[in-house]
Structures are given as C-alpha cells and as structure tokens.
Amino acid sequence: MLEIKNLHASVEGNEILKGLNLEVKPGEVHAIMGPNGSGKSTLASVLAGNEDYEVTEGSAHLDGEDLLDMGTEDRAREGLFLAFQYPVEIPGVSNINFLRTALNEIREHKGQEQLSAKDFLRLVKEKSALVELDGKLANRSVNEGFSGGEKKRNEIFQMAMLEPKLAILDETDSGLDIDALKVVAQGVNAMRSPERSFLVITHYQRLLDYIVPDVVHVLYKGRIVKSGPKELAMELEEKGYDWIKEEVTA
C-alpha cells in the first residue's frame, strides 16, 4: 500500500526527515508516535503534498504510484487522505458543496460517473451519522464556527465520504475530550477494511486504546528508531521517550 524509502525532507532549509523508511500493507493500521519536533506532522504534510516542504532524497509510493511526483489533488484522487491537525475554516463554502465538488473530481479522475444529487445526499446522511455529525453542520461553511471536536469529526466525515485507500490521521485526537475521541475512533474503526490502511499519528497512547494499531513506530529526529506491536505504545506512555533517546544515542 504505502512504501516510503529513505525519505529526507526539509522546511526553510532545515532538514526534518532524515532517511525515513516505512511500509504499510493493505488493511493495516500503523501508529506513529514520538516526542514533539520529531517530524510526525512533517511526514503527514510531505505525504499529502504540502508545498512548504521540500523532499531532498528518497521515495514514497502508494500502490506502486510515485506520490512525490503528484500534486496534492492527484494524491487525494489516487486515494490518499489526510485528516488535518488544524482543519482550515473556509467561510462561504458550504461543507456540502465542497464535498460534492471533491467527490465528483475524484470520480472524474477515476473515470466514474458523477453522483446524482439524490445518491449524494443519501451518502451524506449515512456518513454523517457515522461520526454523529449534526446534519446542520453539513450545510454550514467548512469548519466555520465549529468547535474543536466538530472540526475533527468533520475530518473523519470527509474521510468516510471520500473512501480513501490510505488515511493519515495527523494528531486527530489532540485536544479532544473522551466522548469526542470515542466518536472519532468509532468512525475510523467502521472504515477499517482489508483494502484500506491507516497511518495514525499521535502524541498520546490514549487514542490507541480505541483505534488498535497493528504496528507502533517511534519517530525520533526524523527517523523511525523503533517499531513494535501495540504494547510498545503502553510502554511509551509509562516510561516516556527518554529511554528511546538514550537507546538511539547509545
């Protein structure tokens, strides 16, 4: 599904990712943890095609397609989805209009017919229920005036609508209360399938109680320095990151 080899990326001349390797197979959920500044969000941004970041070396492929060669929109059309850490407010653009445009552009890319208004609305109803998103929010401007929890639920709602191959959740849990966290996790779990993979970037182990990962990676100083089963997350929660740092420098 996702294959990253020796990825180096920098922002404003500072190298953040320093040779990152990662392979995610179809149907797997991988968690990426790590201390602040280790490069977690950079990885998400680079994969999504944020032009503020410059890839200096390495490769990233999604189902064999060279991601780094594609613009942001083409990555999304090829099935990559990033749930943003800080979803942008877009006054005047309704959630519905936005999603219909997105869905139709993705379908057009895949050579599929446009969805009828009726089918589209049925899909909206079905998917918004998944994350318990109030129907009224669907008609409001994208994220405008949404609470933090609503914004994150809206990200998962969009993911459910667009049905990506690979979803990257960039600290979707940060700042969420436990109820909102459960709703988000429930939305993600409902979407787990043998054909869909997840990359869950998080700072806290708590999320992983609800979205149980197949593999946990520790990102430190721009590299994955340790990988293990879900128990690794527990260990990190208990012991913090210092022991990892010591291991790396040793």
Binding site: A76, N97, T101, E105
Partner: peptide, 19 residues
C-alpha cells in the same frame, strides 16, 4: 485544504472566489 480533498487548483480558487 481543498486540493487535499481532490479538488483541482483552478476549481479550488473558483470556489473561494464565489464564496
């Protein structure tokens, strides 16, 4: 943000102008 949802750059700008 709009591009990250699969919307082409030209349509994204158009949506924002209309908004």
């Amino acid at each position: 943000y709009l591009r990250a949802r699969g919307i082409g750059e030209a349509s994204a700008r158009k949506l924002l102008v209309q908004a």
